Simulated assay, not measured.
Amino acid sequence: MTFPSFRRAMLGAAAAVMMVPAVLSSALPARAEEAPKKEFEYVTLGDFTVNLPSSSRRMSYVVVSVTLETKSAQTQQFRDLSPRLKQAVLQRLMAMSVRQELRPGRTDPGVLRDNLFDSLAQLQEEGLKDVVITRLLYS
């Protein structure tokens, strides 16, 4: 191979390498547009601490962490309503405590979730997919 043909080959290779980013960048926006949007999002309501009735002098309580799974289109509505939603959760947990439905070893997380779902659906049913109990801790 002579120097001029070697030089042409090297320049051609360099040009090809320089074109790769341009070709890839033109393909990337199309892929970004095709990326599916999330159908559901999570809204964390936080931890709720509720005293439990006790016959002894020792205080006992339960900590329940609640997160909502919502449709993405309505997520902001749930965030805007979060003070009311938190109030509804706390009221339902306190009522369950008085009825002794929140007892260590006897609380069915499914029933707890259903109770909270019912309370929250009264405030904002549209867009509420699920209530997720992320922590259930007794002391």
Rank of each mutant, 00 (worst) to 15 (best):
F3P: 00
P4E: 08
F6K: 01
G12Y: 10
A13H: 05
A14H: 02
A14D: 03
A16L: 15
M18I: 10
V20H: 00
L24I: 12
S26P: 05
L28E: 13
L28Q: 11
A30K: 12
A32P: 05
E33M: 11
E34S: 06
E34Y: 02
P36A: 06
F40D: 04
F40N: 13
F40A: 09
L45N: 03
F48Q: 07
N51P: 12
L52N: 05
L52M: 09
S56F: 04
S60M: 12
S65R: 11
V66R: 06
T67Q: 15
L68C: 05
S72Y: 12
T75F: 11
T75E: 15
Q76F: 13
Q76W: 04
Q77L: 09
S82E: 15
P83D: 11
R84L: 12
R84A: 14
L93F: 01
M94F: 10
S97C: 10
V98T: 10
R99F: 04
R99V: 01
R103M: 05
D108L: 06
D108N: 11
V111N: 08
V111F: 07
N115D: 14
D118V: 00
A121F: 00
L123I: 10
Q124W: 11
Q124D: 06
E125V: 03
G127T: 00
G127H: 07
D130G: 12
I133F: 07
T134K: 12
L136K: 10
L136Q: 01
L137S: 12
Y138C: 03
